[in-house]
Every structure is written in C-alpha cells, then in structure tokens.
C-alpha cells in the first residue's frame, strides 16, 4: 500500500513537471468553459456546454497521458525493472491509471465550478446520474488508451496514434464545435467515435432527457469491454 501511494504521488508530480496533461486536461477545459459561458444565452445552453467540455480532461489523460506514459515506461525498461523487485510492474500501471482518473475527475469538477460560480449554471438533471455517466465515459476512453498502449510497438507510434485520436475527438465530437452545425459527411464520421456517444450521454443526463440513451450506454460499455479484452491479450511488459 505504501509503495502504491508513493508511486501514485510520483505520477502526479511527474505530470505537473511535464505540464502537457495540466495544459490539455485542466487549463484548456476550464478556459473553454469560461469562453462558452460568455456565449451561452440560458441555463440549458450552459448545461450542454458543461456536459461536452467536462470530457476534455478525461480525453487528455485517457488518450494522451495513459498510452504515452505506458509506452515510455515499456521502452525505457521501467516496467522490466519492476519485474526484478518484490512487486509487480502492474503496481505502476495501477498508479498511473489512478492518477489519470484523479485528474479527469478533478478536471470535470473544475469545469463545473467555472460554470456554476462563473455563470450561475444549475444542473437540470441528477448530479448522481451525471457522475455515473461521467465515470462510464472515463473508463471507456481510458480502455481505448490502454488498447493503444498494448498494440503500439513504440513510444513514437503511440504519440502519433494518440494525437490522431485525441485531436479529432476533441474537435469533432461536440466538445468544442457543436455536432449539430457540422456537415452531414462529418457527422457520419463523428458518429462512430466513442466520445461522441459519451458526450451525447452526458448532454442527455444534464438536461434530464433520458430516453434514447440506451444505444450510447451500450456502445460505451462495448468499447470498454473490447478495449480491456485487447489490452489483456496483447499487452507486453517489454
């Protein structure tokens, strides 16, 4: 337990030393919420913006930090080094995932605080359901990240795949540009991205419009299962 705590603390410190998760996962979404808050005409629009922007943090950790760190730990033989100690390298993996989850949740809370205290948003739907939905999206996106780390042969490749997934999801899935204003062909592409369904789900919950969410929930659950299955099957420590 002590080791886990030290590893967890170290992962947090390392991410603050490196800054990219802080910029993409905390500063960017908080800033974007402040901007969208200025444009919002009513509480409903605030809710929709909040639901979308709340996912930026989990994408930054799930699609960038998690696969990049694991690939780097494998390439730098950090995982191998833990294999010749009394603990399993699995501890380091868990510590990193825990850090990712912590930062995601903190990011969502921060975005909420900006919307709530900056612009007087009140969440229309249930906060508990929103939290549950958020956790599902978080787990689904992180399992995609884990899958990238398992399949990618090198740190460089992981960087390319991560960027190729993060930026389109970030721009297209409705977190920044509203889905409704996109041309049809773009909507078709965007519809297959898991994050699109995550945002769909969170928007639905925040407005308390819970019908038609079954498909999104199933798709996220399926993404999680496939991601974890592939990760368990293909992940290599070295």
């Amino acid at each position: 337990m002590n080791t886990f705590w030290l590893l967890y603390k170290a992962e947090i410190k390392l991410s603050f030393r490196e800054m990219s998760s802080v910029i993409f996962g905390l500063i960017l979404p908080a800033g974007l919420m402040a901007l969208m808050g200025l444009f919002a005409n009513n509480n409903e629009e605030l809710n929709l913006s909040f639901a979308a922007i709340a996912t930026i943090g989990l994408c930054a950790t799930g699609l960038m930090s998690l696969p990049l760190s694991l690939s780097s730990y494998r390439e730098q033989k950090v995982l191998k080094r833990y294999k010749v100690t009394p603990i399993s390298p699995m501890n380091l993996l868990f510590a990193h995932v825990s850090y990712c989850f912590s930062l995601s949740i903190f990011s969502m809370t921060m975005v909420y605080a900006v919307a709530r205290f900056g612009f007087g948003m009140t969440l229309i739907g249930s906060p508990w359901k929103f939290t549950a939905g958020y956790l599902l999206v978080m787990v689904a996106i992180h399992s995609v990240g884990l899958m990238i780390a398992s399949l990618s042969p090198s740190e460089k490749t992981t960087g390319a795949i991560s960027s190729a997934l993060y930026f389109p999801m970030f721009l297209l899935s409705g977190a920044t540009i509203p889905f409704e204003i996109m041309p049809n062909f773009l909507q078709a592409i965007v519809k297959v991205l898991p994050l699109t369904h995550g945002i769909e789900l969170l928007k639905g919950i925040s407005l308390d419009q819970l019908s038609n969410l079954t498909f999104s929930i199933s798709l996220l659950a399926l993404t999680t299962m496939i991601g974890l299955f592939i990760s368990i099957k293909f992940f290599k420590w070295e």
Partner: peptide
C-alpha cells in the same frame, strides 16, 4: 536479490529522493 540493469530505467523526470523512497518501500 538486488539487480542493477545496464540501462537505468526510471520514469522520466523522477528525482533521486523519490526513486529512493519508492525503492525503499519495496
């Protein structure tokens, strides 16, 4: 059994104190 590999493999950015504390806890 203690091992020192050829490549010193630590998380990028880790400080001396931190790696000592982590290793100590094992």
């Amino acid at each position: 059994v203690g091992v020192q590999f050829q490549e010193s493999a630590f998380q990028k950015g880790l400080k001396v104190k931190e790696i000592c504390e982590i290793t100590h806890s094992l």
